[in-house]
């Protein structure tokens, strides 16, 4: 008979951040109910059990048996290539990203990255969210020159792009952003989607919110389980976790899509201007991104392998994407 498993699950984001941090709650609830008591998931808020930056190490060496975050937060240990599994600037949106992850070899590459770096973890993609807004500013940004010299909180590969344009970026945790803005340690920030940004208080200080989310067209999160814990679980327990994660992917996406408009409207009412990047600015971001990619590939061949695999898939996918979808209404040019 299988042994009961208690998955202690420290998470990277506070679970109060609906849509972003709340996914583990959905996952825990699903597993706790559907496993019939054979698995119990217990969530620990950020830093309560293990410092978030140490989560990967702690899960790998078995100090805690699972963790919930995204590879892009572990670039210090895994290299910048890890961020490809989180979000890619000008990269795939949710349906395409999931297609690559589940059926295009993405998931295997993600697992391989952990394995190659000596981490004893089993990774399960376990949530995805729609695009994030590309930043909150105190002033309008009309040209690349307006970005030069700014200090900004920025995540992932997009941070490299912003650095190219003269922005000094730092990767602050959610709770540190507002105080840093208040005290002038940073002038601008991106964090997540309007509903979550509102919870952190951005609209009160920063009145210019920029769209579209070129830097994170969609973001994937993963559950990591200690390798020994995973191998010790029965087939039925493993299947429960895997399918609960798939359900969580769906829920994260649906919830994120459902709750933003209300906050966008409220932001406008409280004096925030929503801006859509001009064609010039988007072109600037894109060409900077292309330079960044070239540099990252030159620095680290493995970055090139993973990015190449994603790009090959995207090339194949393009014909379908271009033919099947209706033109999308956007703010472009308005």
């Amino acid at each position: 008979a299988e042994d009961k498993v208690l998955l202690k699950l420290p998470v990277w984001f506070g679970t109060h951040l609906t849509g972003l941090g709340s996914s583990p709650l959905f996952f825990a609830d699903t597993v706790n109910k559907s496993s019939g008591g054979s698995i119990k998931v217990k969530i620990y808020e950020p830093g309560k059990l293990v410092a978030t930056k140490e989560m990967l190490e702690s899960v790998s060496n078995g100090s805690v048996n699972s963790g919930w975050g995204t590879p892009g937060y572990n670039t210090g240990l895994l290299g910048k290539k890890a961020a490809i599994f989180s979000a890619v600037p000008f990269g795939p949106e949710a349906p395409e990203f999931m297609a690559w992850m589940y059926y295009g070899g993405g998931r295997e590459l993600m697992q391989k990255l952990y394995d190659d770096n000596g981490y004893n973890v089993h990774s399960v993609p376990c949530s995805i969210i729609a695009p994030e807004t590309s930043g909150w500013f105190t002033k309008e940004i009309n040209s690349p020159a307006d970005l030069d010299g700014l200090r900004m909180r920025f995540f992932g590969l997009g941070a490299n792009v912003m650095e190219k344009l003269g922005v000094t970026t730092s990767l602050l945790a959610s709770g540190d952003i507002m105080p840093a803005l208040e005290k002038g340690a940073i002038d601008a920030t991106e964090f997540s989607m309007p509903a979550i940004d509102k919870l952190l208080g951005f609209p009160k200080l920063l009145k210019h919110n920029y769209y579209p989310g070129w830097h994170q067209p969609s973001t994937i999160f993963d559950l990591i389980v200690n390798g020994d814990t995973w191998n010790g679980m029965s087939e039925s327990q493993q299947a429960t976790v895997e399918s609960a994660c798939k359900a969580t992917m769906l829920d994260g996406l649906a919830l994120g899509e459902a709750i933003q408009f209300e906050y966008m409207k409220a932001n406008v009412e409280s004096g925030v201007t929503n801006h859509y990047w001009s064609d010039e600015m988007l072109a600037t971001f894109r060409s900077a991104w292309e330079e960044v990619v070239a540099e990252l590939i030159a620095e680290d061949p493995e970055f090139g392998e993973i990015y190449g695999a994603l790009n090959d898939f995207r090339d194949d996918y393009r014909i379908w994407q271009e033919w099947i979808y209706l033109p999308r209404p956007t703010m472009q040019g308005k």
């Binding site: 000596g118 730092s170 990767l171």
Partner: peptide, 12 residues
């Protein structure tokens, strides 16, 4: 481990 992984800052 940090040494072997040549760990870098989380900031770009």
């Amino acid at each position: 481990h940090s040494f072997m992984a040549n760990e870098f800052s989380e900031n770009t």
